[in-house]
Nucleic acid binder design. Structure first.
Lengths: 342, 342
DNA sequence: TTGTAGGCGTTATCAA
DNA sequence: TTGATAACGCCTACAA
C-alpha cells in the first residue's frame, strides 16, 4: 500500500542501508560500519542498529557491495565433473574453508570439456572473482591467458606443476601409476593390463607410471592396454573388461584408471564366474566409498581430495591476503589401500 | 606502462564500457546497447564496436550490471547433497536449461541440514536472484518466510505440493513406496522389511507408502522397519542389513529407501553367502547407474531427476517472464525397473 | 566515533 | 539511431 517516494527504479523496493539509517537516525555509512566492523561503532548505536536491521529485515546488496568495494568475495572453482565423488569431496574441503571466511564459491562444472571450461571461466570472470581454483594444468590457450590476466590468485589442484612455478596442491599421478603397478608385480602378477577412459592428463600420467613400471620389469605389452575416450562409469568398466579379455585372454591383472571402472570390471567377473583375484586381479584408483564393500573388496589408491580442496583454499587465502607463503606447491601424497581384489 | 588518468579506484584497471566508448568515439551507452541489443545499433558502428571490444578485451562487470538493472541473471538452487547422483542429475537438467538463457546458477548444498539451508538461502538472497529452485517442502519457518518474501519465482522440486498451491515439479514419493511394496507382495514376498536413513520428508513418504501397502495386505510388522538418521552410504546399507537380520531373521525381502543402501545390502549378502533373491530379495530406489550392473542386478525405481531439473528450470523461466502458465504443478512420474534382485 | 563527498560500471529514461 | 543524465546501493577516502 505505501508508496515510498524515494524508490524510483528500485527493483522490488528492497530495504537499503539508507532505510536503516533513517530509522536509526544516523548516516548510512554508520550502518555499513556497524555491520562490517562492529568494533568501530559505539555500543549503544550498534545495538539500536542491530535492532533496526532485524525489524526492517535489511539484507546487504551483493552487487552494490562488490561494485563499490571492487571485491566480489567470490572464488571460482573449476572442476571437470560433479558426478564424481572425487570432485565433490574436493569441493567440500574448499567450501568448508572458504565459507567461514565470508567467501562465496562459484562452481563451474566443465564436464571434461576444455571448451566448456573456457566458456565457464569467461562467464565467471565477469564476477571479478577474488580467486580461482582450477583442476589440473591442461587447458586451452585462451583459458591460460584468462587465468594469467585474471588479476587474482589462481591455485591449481590435483596435480603437481612440473615447472614448479604455479601455486598448486595435489599429488603425483605418475607415482600413483608406478606404485600400483609395482605392487601388482610384487604380488606376482605377470600380465597386467591397464584400462583407461576419459583421457585427461591425470589419467595419462597414471598410465605413464604403469608403462614405466612394466617396462622396467620388462613386462610391458601394449596389447594389454585399453583406452576409450568415453566418460567413466561402472557399466563401461564391465564392457571394457569384456573387450580386454578378448584382446588379451591371458590377462592376470587389470589396473583400472579409476574405481568406477574397477567396480564394473568386478561385477563382470562375478557375472561370468571369473574368480577375483585368483583368476584375475582387479585394482582401481581413488578409493571410492563403495570399493571397501564390494565382494571381494577392491584394492585401490586413496587420494586426499578433501585435503586438497582444503589446502588449496587455504593457499588462496594466503595469496589473497598478500602474504608470500614460502611454500606454494603442496604434494599431499596418496595411499595404496591393499584389499582383497589383488 | 600507460597510466590512465581516469582510473582512480578501479580495482585492477579493468577495461570498462567507457574505455571501449573512447576508443570507438561514441558514448558508453551505445557500446552497452551494441552488446545487449545489436539490432538497435547501426551496422557500421556495431562492427567497429565488436572490434574494439575484442582488441581491448572488454568484459562486462557483473556487479555493475546487476546493480544498474536490478536483475542479477542468477538463479539459486538449493539441494540437500552433491554426493548423490540424484541431485547432480537434477542440476544438469537445470544448468542445461538455464545456461543458454544467460542465467548463472548458484548452487547451495545444505547437506541435509535445515539450518545450513537457512544460512545458505540467507546468504544467497543478497544476490537478489531472479529465481529460486528448492528441494522439497520441508524447511524452517525462516526459510519459508524468506522464500515468500524473496520477490522472485520459487519452484519446488522432487515432491508434489499437497496443498497444490506452490509451483512444483516432482513425483509422488508416496506412490513410489506403495508401488514397490505392492510389487514385492505380488512377487510373493511375505515378510518385507524397510530400511530407512536420513529421514528427510521424501524418505518418510516412501516409508508411508510401504506401510500402507503392507497394512492393506495385513502384512505390516514394525519389527521389520529399521531407521537411522545417518546419511546414506553403501557401507551403511551393509551394516543395517546385518542389524535387521538379527532383529527379524525371517525377513524375505528388504526395501531400501535408496540404491546406495541396497547395494550395500547386496554386498553384505554376497559376503555372507545369502542368495539374492532366493533367500532375501533386495530392492532400492532411484536406480543409480551402478545398480544395473551389480550381480544380481538391482530392482529399483527410476526417478526422472534430469527431467525434473529441466522442467523446474523451464517453469521458472515462464514465471520469470511474467507468464501465467495454466499448469504449475508437474508430476513427472516414476518407473519401477524390475531386475534380478527381486 | 561519526559524517560528507564522490565514485564504482552499468543501465533506464527521456530527449534529440 | 545515438546520447545526456541520473540513478542502482554501497564503500573508500578524508574530514570533523
Amino acid at each position: 500500500m505505501k508508496t515510498p517516494a524515494r524508490a524510483k527504479r528500485s527493483a522490488v523496493g528492497k530495504v537499503t542501508l539508507n532505510d536503516v539509517a533513517e530509522r536509526v537516525g544516523v548516516s548510512a555509512i554508520t550502518i555499513s560500519r556497524a555491520l562490517r566492523t562492529p568494533e568501530k561503532v559505539s555500543e549503544v548505536l550498534r545495538q539500536r542498529i542491530d535492532e533496526a536491521v532485524q525489524e526492517l529485515g535489511y539484507r546487504p546488496n551483493y552487487a552494490a557491495r562488490a561494485l563499490a568495494s571492487a571485491r566480489s568475495h567470490t572464488v571460482v572453482v573449476l572442476v571437470p565433473s560433479l558426478s564424481n565423488e572425487v570432485f565433490v569431496d574436493t569441493l567440500s574441503g574448499i567450501y568448508e574453508t572458504l565459507h567461514p571466511r565470508g567467501y562465496q564459491v562459484l562452481i563451474g562444472n566443465s564436464r571434461y570439456s576444455k571448451e566448456e571450461e573456457e566458456r565457464l571461466l569467461s562467464a565467471y570472470l565477469t564476477h571479478n572473482p577474488d580467486g580461482i581454483l582450477v583442476t589440473g594444468f591442461e587447458h586451452t590457450a585462451e583459458v591460460e591467458r584468462l587465468l594469467a590476466n585474471a588479476g587474482c590468485p589462481v591455485v591449481y589442484m590435483m596435480e603437481m606443476d612440473e615447472q614448479g612455478q604455479r601455486p598448486c596442491v595435489g599429488f603425483s599421478q605418475y607415482e600413483c601409476g608406478l606404485a600400483m603397478t609395482n605392487y601388482l608385480l610384487q604380488r606376482g602378477y605377470q600380465r597386467i593390463g591397464f584400462m583407461a577412459v576419459q583421457g585427461d592428463s591425470r589419467v595419462l600420467k597414471r598410465w605413464q607410471g604403469y608403462q614405466d613400471s612394466l617396462k622396467q620389469a620388462d613386462r610391458y605389452d601394449p596389447r594389454r592396454e585399453y583406452y576409450v575416450p568415453d566418460s567413466s562409469s561402472v557399466g563401461l568398466g564391465a564392457e571394457l573388461l569384456a573387450q580386454m579379455l578378448e584382446q588379451a585372454p591371458d590377462l592376470d591383472a587389470v589396473f583400472c584408471c579409476n574405481d568406477d571402472l574397477a567396480q564394473g570390471a568386478l561385477f563382470y567377473c562375478q557375472r561370468h564366474g571369473i574368480r577375483v583375484p585368483e583368476q584375475l586381479a582387479i585394482v582401481g584408483f581413488n578409493d571410492l566409498a563403495a570399493s571397501a564393500w564390494t565382494v571381494p573388496s577392491l584394492t585401490s589408491i586413496a587420494t586426499p581430495r578433501y585435503a586438497i580442496g582444503k589446502r588449496a583454499a587455504e593457499l588462496f587465502l594466503q595469496l589473497a591476503e598478500g602474504q608470500t607463503p614460502e611454500q606454494t606447491a603442496f604434494d599431499l601424497g596418496f595411499e595404496l589401500v591393499a584389499r582383497e581384489s589383488a
